[in-house]
Amino acid sequence: MIAIDKFCYTSRLRYVNASEKFALAVITLLICIAGQSFVISAAVLAVMGVLTVRKGGLPFSRYRKMLMWPLGFLILSTLAIMINVSRVPLDLFAVPLGGWYITGSAAGALRTARLIVTALAGVSCLYFLSLSTPMTDILTVLGYCRCPRLIIELMLLIYRFIFVLLDIASAMTTAQNARLGNKDFRTACHSFGQMASALLLRALKKSNALYDAMEARCYDGTIRVLKEDYPPKAREIAAIAVFEFILLILLAGRLTGWVM
């Protein structure tokens, strides 16, 4: 089971109009990375966090853990950006090492700190969208955005098949574990390979059977499903507009230099 998907179906924001949520997440995300500023990022992080936790009903401890997921990437690349190896020491710190220095500058540290908060705020926007809007609703919005029908159809099918295959894969992994298939590194590699090839085989068999079934029911290249419609509410649109307006003012402030 995919954790994010499970939470999103139980979110209290699930039945809010999907286009509203999509627009809020994407516009905020763009302003946030265009600004790269402490103030904008803090505002975005706070608003998105409150929306996901208070309005959406996700436990805060889960949310905090989820924000930690991309930490590995964040730590490593931040190290790479901040720390320099050079013959001349920079102003913030410098550790001499033979003829060289492991060194960093104050401007670099400030830039890196900005990058970290921006990235976290970006992740909070992404989480707001994915923890409140089921994939099928996102696909409907993509349809309004003139994404080719073929791609949307393909995504819909892939989304469905992911769960079918995950089920099969977890059953096979359990069977392998029960037979000591993961007892050491060598067997684990071998087992994973066997599991993956058996999985592909099963997937192909299933796809053949599925195609026959769909053909028998007059499949002509599109799957037609009933759309559930939740009309946008004026109050929500107004709130989103006010929030984005404030962010835009802050962005203008950042570009002219009076906001950090």
Partner: peptide, 10 residues
């Protein structure tokens, strides 16, 4: 189409 979708899911 179905084959591609299965491959993507895989």
């Amino acid at each position: 189409m179905i084959l591609l979708a299965m491959s993507g899911a895989f």
